[in-house]
Nucleic acid binder design. Sequence first.
DNA 1: TCTAAGATGGGT
DNA 2: CCCATCTTAGAA
Length: 204
Amino acid sequence: MIDIESQYTKVLPSFFQRSDVVEIARDLLGKVLFTYLNGELTGGMIVETEAYCGETDRACHAFGKRTARTEPMYQPGGIAYVYLCYGIHHLFNVVTNKLGAADAVLIRALEPVVGLDIMLKRRQNKNAKLASGPGVLSQALGISTSLNGCSLQGDEIWIASEKEAKLPEIVAGKRIGVEYAGVDAHLPWRFGIKNHPEVSKKMS
DNA sequence: TCTAAGATGGGT
DNA sequence: CCCATCTTAGAA
């Protein structure tokens, strides 16, 4: 098994609690998301993200209201916001910014790094990519709404940076599936690693 | 209570 | 293009 301790350093709350969610969405590219659940370690490099900016962003769940579902988004940055979409898909977000600001970054695609056999077992689908798409990556890493509100400083789910990591080339585009958001639907708040196979081609 | 819509994914 | 699937939010 890979020696996680020596190759990666866990990303600290100060990274997530910065005020610019768009900047954090860009900075998360190239970092690695890990889960350790039921004795199974899986991890993937983040290659595609989307920023959602609180109560003023028409595409954000917290737009104009505060409900029970979005409560984790209002907590200080560095915890998980996981919700169920279309009744089927568990979508994983990283909460950012300070207490009271409902910002979050949706993780949209990973490049599998650790525990590929476990991901394959969980995915149970030989045709599709292992971790390309927000619902798919959650399935591959075993993420479900039971991790909603969970700290990213614990040992169930966390984000780490590779010590030797090089800065990725970044491309930006419109966010997906938010046509209803009016002018905010056009914001270039989706980010991907340039030419990466797990990132969808159309970035604008 | 009731119901429309949704930050998707997989198949045709 | 089509639709399974079910929680959530807002209306009644």
